[in-house]
Design a protein around this nucleic acid. Structure first.
Lengths: 213, 213
DNA sequence: TCGCAATGGTGATAGCCTCTAACTCCAGTT
DNA sequence: AACTGGAGTTAGAGGCTATCACCATTGCGA
């Protein structure tokens, strides 16, 4: 229980950090990450610019924290859905709902990376956590998968896989889940379908359907 | 012939504009578009900051010109390849080669859009031009395509299609070409496969193969 | 209870950036 | 030869990130 004891100072600090992140999300949701302004956040919080640097060492530091939270949120959503019995198709729709609920949050993770940004080991782990769920879902689903050249390649390049006993064909399926759905989602969120007047949900459903092979 | 007569002033202007764009591309290739600095470009050209505004009304204006050029380049590459007999698979590899030759150029078009940016009608037309080539390629390829719900939807939502007589199943195929390949490409260019030590070319090839249905 | 170190806040400032305004100057036109 | 419009300049407003020196407050141990 000793670990749970936090001083009032630390509690306050954590809360202010949370408030900063909340305002940051709000700002990102409307203007995107590129226009994220620490000064504007500070103003909204009623304090003056440099005070923010007590809580986040730099703009990149804040963004890193946001990325971490976004990954955590997505990983939780996927894991929870799988925990309550979601299959591949259901997981796909959980991912889409998560992305549409806050497009800029999705783009923060999977969009164009900021120039010099280095992902902390931490986010890589969460990315693998998501992959693990997909792999587990595919394993129990037992969907037949052809032996493609890429699957053969994965057989000897699987150090990113959580479990060495999983068939390479399943790894390929999980990877394809990722790339195909991201293909539709990222184009949709970037607005590349606007003006075409098409129902992206149907396109997405088609791709989800294509994952049963 | 009168239309080709340009004053020396105009020639000079066009050349400086080209030089500015060239330096802009150089800068984008290393730092990405978000760090594009007009002042830095001007410095490289040996002139002082505000002089650039004679040639591009604003930073967004310059970026728009770059986007236009990027679209033009991709559309040309795809059309030329198709003109010299490239089939669907060959077109897919032309697109990948184009993307890898300058990742930031691809991301400028298909990556996270800048907040307030509005695509000019011009780029929409070029996007459609690319789509037209894909549609033509699929039409001559005559690859069997299932009648999916999305294809049925496209049958009545095809105003973006260049030709009203093309079967909706073909429209769906062209769209799938786009989303699947973009899924792999954008994740690759954003660096989401680094650390996994996988051969993305094989993953891409698998997806290209999946397009024959 | 008192004193003190750590923490949170401030304004000033440096150094970037975009973009505007006023001004000079010269090439090309008339 | 005179004129005009475009190209360039410097100065400067206003935005940003980030650092610094300094003040205020808090909460802890002696």
């Amino acid at each position: 229980m000793d670990g749970d004891v936090v001083s009032p100072r630390e509690r306050y600090r954590a809360q202010v950090q949370a408030e900063i992140k909340q305002h940051a999300w709000q700002q990102i949701a409307t203007t995107g990450v590129s226009a994220l302004s620490l000064k504007a956040i500070a103003k909204h919080l009623g304090m003056s610019g440099p005070a923010l640097y007590r809580y986040f060492a730099s703009r990149d530091d804040l963004i890193t924290a946001l990325i971490r939270d976004a990954y955590r949120s997505l990983a939780d959503a996927v894991r929870e859905a799988y925990g309550s019995g979601a299959d591949i198709a259901a997981l796909a729709h959980v991912v889409r709902a998560w992305a549409l609920s806050d497009p800029h949050r999705y783009l923060l993770i999977y969009g164009t990376p900021v120039p010099g940004y280095q992902a902390p080991a931490d986010t890589v782990a969460m990315s693998q956590e998501i992959m693990s769920v997909l792999i587990a879902a595919y394993r129990t689903a037992d969907i037949p998968s052809p032996e493609t050249p890429f699957a053969a390649h994965l057989d000897s390049h699987r150090h990113w896989s959580p479990d060495p006993t999983v068939p390479a064909a399943v790894l390929r399926q999980a990877m394809t889940f990722w790339t195909r759905l991201h293909g539709v989602l990222s184009l949709e969120l970037a607005g590349h379908f606007t003006g075409m007047d098409i129902d992206v949900a149907l396109l997405y459903a088609d791709e989800v359907d294509s994952l049963r092979q």
